[in-house]
């Protein structure tokens, strides 16, 4: 059974100021299998984050339905862990309290929360930083806390909204490697939004290439490249060339449409 099911999703944003409707997503259907690592790839403004927010429950589709694990999504919930573009940590809580925030909400005792957090802190390689505050962390470390926090929910699916976009190249590569390792170990379903072709090809089991205005899925590409992925290998580059061509074509069509 599919883990996530998007059926005929259409999203129209009401632009109240200009009294105009904007068709952001046009009839997208997509199903994500259990344990899959799906990358939603597209340029900014193509609606990939909107799609992710619908799975998370932060936004509702104008038409169509979203189900996760067979249940219709009607709001955010702890069965779907989300990692945001900015880590969004509570700045007044130390690292371990941020990781265990969900347990705080569930009314767990402090000692139990502390114990439970440790596994996930170790998993993302933050041992020794348990009592640091978010203001004392680098961007990469903050994202690790964000990932640990999502993992602690033990969710059916993990949603990631360009979590590494603000990191430097080296840190980004390390984080991607670790994320794949964690995903392989935890056996969870991941939907990962990115605008980087390389990132999508390094991480995903499948890549959904999106077109913009209105957002549609142009092509679904299954990746059967062995891991760890060789970013300079011929097969990797074949995929990359293909995707870049799709994107180029799309850009060309849009410019022509704009002229006409």
């Amino acid at each position: 059974m599919a883990s996530i099911e998007l059926r005929n999703i259409t999203k129209i944003f009401r632009d109240a100021k200009r009294k105009r409707d904007l068709l952001a997503i046009d009839n997208v259907s997509l199903s994500v299998e259990k344990n899959e690592f799906l990358c939603l790839l597209g340029s900014s403004g193509c609606g990939k984050s909107t799609l992710l927010n619908m799975i998370a429950g932060f936004e509702k589709p104008t038409e169509g339905s979203v189900t996760v694990g067979g249940k219709a999504v009607d709001g955010p919930g702890a069965d779907r862990g989300m990692v945001f573009q900015q880590a969004n940590l509570m700045p007044w809580l130390p690292v371990w309290e941020n990781v265990a925030f969900h347990l705080r909400l569930k009314g767990w005792r402090k000692a139990d929360r502390r114990d439970a957090a440790q596994d996930y802190i170790d998993m993302v390689g933050l041992r020794g930083f348990e009592n640091h505050f978010p203001a004392e962390l680098s961007g990469g470390m903050s994202q690790r806390v964000g990932i640990a926090r999502a993992l602690l929910l033990n969710p059916q699916v993990i949603l990631m909204d360009e979590p590494f976009a603000a990191l430097d190249a080296q840190t980004k590569m390390d984080m991607q490697e670790e994320l794949v390792a964690i995903w392989q170990k935890q056996r969870c379903t991941v939907v990962f939004v990115t605008h980087s072709v390389d990132e999508a090809l390094v991480l995903g089991t499948r890549v959904a290439v999106m077109t913009s205005r209105p957002g549609r899925i142009r092509e679904l590409i299954a990746l059967d490249l062995p891991r760890p992925r060789d970013t300079t290998g011929p097969r990797f580059n074949d995929h990359k060339r293909h995707i870049l061509n799709l994107i180029r074509e799309e850009g060309l069509q849009q410019r022509q449409a704009a002229v006409a």
Binding site: P76, G77, R80, Q86, N88, F101, L105, R149
Partner: peptide
Amino acid sequence: DRNLIRAASMMGATEQQLLRHV
């Protein structure tokens, strides 16, 4: 910060918990 509220509701916070913890 609205994003902190989003993060907390992602972790299953009720409205009362949002007020108290965020």
